[in-house]
Every structure is written in C-alpha cells, then in structure tokens.
C-alpha cells in the first residue's frame, strides 16, 4: 500500500491495512536493531522535536533512540502545563516550533485532543505520544506488535486489560488496534474506573478479575496512577491490590502459555506482583523493545521513507 498519512494522532481512524503496514515496516526496522552498528541514514537532515508537556522518560527516550537510529536530528523540549498557561500557550508554542521548520513533532500533552489541535496549526507531521485520556497510538501499535511476536495472531485470542480503564489512553488506542484485528477483548476494573458505556466499544466488561483472566492468552495490567487522587475512585491501594492486582493465584486461571504485559512503569506489588513481573510469562521488556521498532517505523513512514525506499 501507499502511505498517505501526514500525522499519527490516534488509531481511531487507522484501517487494518495501515496497521499491518506499520507492523511490517517495524519488522524491517527490527533488523537494523540487531546489527552491530544500529544506525541508518534514512532521516538524515530531518529534525524531530520531542515536545513533552508531561513527565515521561520511557516514551521520550524510546522516540529519541528511534530517531537517532534513523539519523534524525533530535531536539527535546520538555515543559509542564501550569494551570494558567493553557491553550494560548499551546497555540503559541506550536507556531513557534513550526516556524523553526522541523520535519516531525512528537507530542505528549495532558489534554485530550491536544495532538489534533496541534496538527491544525503546524505544517509538519505530528505524532501523538499520548494526549490526556484520549490515545497513545504508538503504545497501541507496539502492544499489538509484541503480542504478534509471541502469539502470531490476534484474531480470536482473549486479551484482558485490567485497571483504570476510565482514564487510560493506552486502552483507547488498544481498543482500536487489538479490537480491529479481531481480539476477544475484556476490560476489567473497579466499577468507578470502568464506565458502563465502554461496552459500546465492543469489548466485554467485568468487575471480576477472575472472569477477565480465565482462559486469557494475554493479561495486560495498567498502571494505577498513585499521583492521581485515586482514593476517590476506590477505598485504598490495599483494597485495590487485593481485588484487582494480578498475582500467581489469579494468573493460574489464564491459559498455560499466557503472557503478561504492562505499559510501564509498574507499581510493583500494587497492580502486579513482583514474582509475576519478573517471570517467564512477562513480555514487558519485549514491549519496550518493540516500541523502538514501531516508533522507527512511524518516523520513517512520516518522513517519506516509504517513497524514498522505492
């Protein structure tokens, strides 16, 4: 297929064909990662700006490594959004950075829709690295890729996602990536963090972790954000951990070859027990590895690499 997309704002409007194309491209990028010299000149002379309005080490580093492996000039811009400098400053920032003529802006922002907003005011490409509770498309793609590596298929396998569904941008992207590829998706969490309307996504909902994990091929645990005022959503972390934490006893209900995923960083002992996080079932580090390949693929495609390659 021909890649026509200028921005990657979310997976909501990605076709299955496009998703497969990104995965195929990521596979060829992974070859680069196995070489001694992990660098190709595909993005030489292109500037990629990492624009992060929320603290994030992993995603930012992953994009930075991906860009550097493709020989892009990487610029990091980190800032926090204070309550007074709201929209006006995002518009201003967007226009200022755009005036410096970067090739691609990678943005993380606490407001849902911020990447869509940015894309309307810049002439370069935009990759959404997480916008509020809306989407985290590269995570959705890397999760899909990591699962494919161990399961070889998505269609029909049972994938349980457990935790704070309400606020999770990872879930919203995964609903599109995994959902569209035909997974049997289950969402699980306390009722306060699992809105009933979520059933309209096509996923099955349950408040019982055992029902979610039973016969699952993949169990994906979400980070409970300790920094959010989550006490309002459930009584205590202790109670949360008892009812919605994954431990060996609950995990034993899953299929024998089931894998455990987590977008990181993990609150060890809260949503995921230490022993499981480090067990052979965990593919958490494979997710991280897949992330670099997926991000390389997207940077490459957005920079017009696909056409250059022909």
């Amino acid at each position: 297929m021909e890649w026509r997309r200028r921005h990657v704002l979310g997976l909501a409007d990605f076709s299955t064909e496009e998703i497969e194309f990104v995965i195929d491209t990521a596979r060829s990028m992974e070859d680069v990662l196995t070489r001694d010299i992990k660098k190709v000149p595909a993005l030489r002379g292109k500037t990629v700006v990492n624009l992060f309005f929320e603290p994030s080490t992993r995603t930012r580093t992953s994009f930075e490594i991906a860009g550097k492996r493709l020989s892009a000039d990487m610029v990091n811009f980190s800032s926090t959004v204070s309550s007074i400098s709201k929209g006006e400053s995002l518009l201003d920032t967007a226009r200022n950075i755009d005036a410096m003529k970067p090739g691609i802006i990678v943005m993380r922002h606490p407001a849902s829709g911020a990447a869509h907003f940015l894309s309307r005011y810049v002439s370069c490409s935009v990759i959404n690295a997480g916008d509020g509770s809306n989407e985290h498309p590269t995570q959705g793609l890397l999760d899909l890729y990591a699962i494919l590596k161990v399961k070889n298929k998505i269609k029909g396998i049972k994938i349980a996602i457990i935790g704070d569904i309400l606020h999770s941008r990872v879930v919203r992207s995964n609903l599109h990536s995994l959902g569209r590829m035909g997974a049997d998706l289950w969402l699980c969490g306390p009722a306060t963090l699992l809105p009933r309307e979520m059933a309209r996504s096509g996923a099955k909902l349950t408040n019982d972790i055992r029902e979610a994990v039973r016969d699952a091929d993949v169990v994906m645990m979400l980070r409970i954000q300790l920094e959010r005022q989550h006490t309002a959503y459930f009584p205590s972390l202790r109670e949360y951990s008892r009812k919605y934490g994954l431990n060996s006893e609950v995990f034993s209900l899953a299929r024998k070859d089931a894998v455990i995923m987590h977008p990181g960083p993990i609150n060890r002992g809260v949503e995921l027990s230490d022993e499981l996080a480090d067990s052979a079932h965990s593919i958490i580090l494979n997710q991280v590895e897949s992330g670099v390949a997926i991000r390389m693929a997207l940077l490459y495609l957005l920079a017009g690499g696909h056409h250059a390659a022909h």
Partner: peptide
C-alpha cells in the same frame, strides 16, 4: 478566540 482556540478541556 484565545479562550476557544485551545485544548477542549481548557476552553
């Protein structure tokens, strides 16, 4: 315009 041309939650 300033208070409407911005992120949805901030508008």
């Amino acid at each position: 315009d300033l208070t409407k041309r911005c992120e949805f939650t901030a508008a």
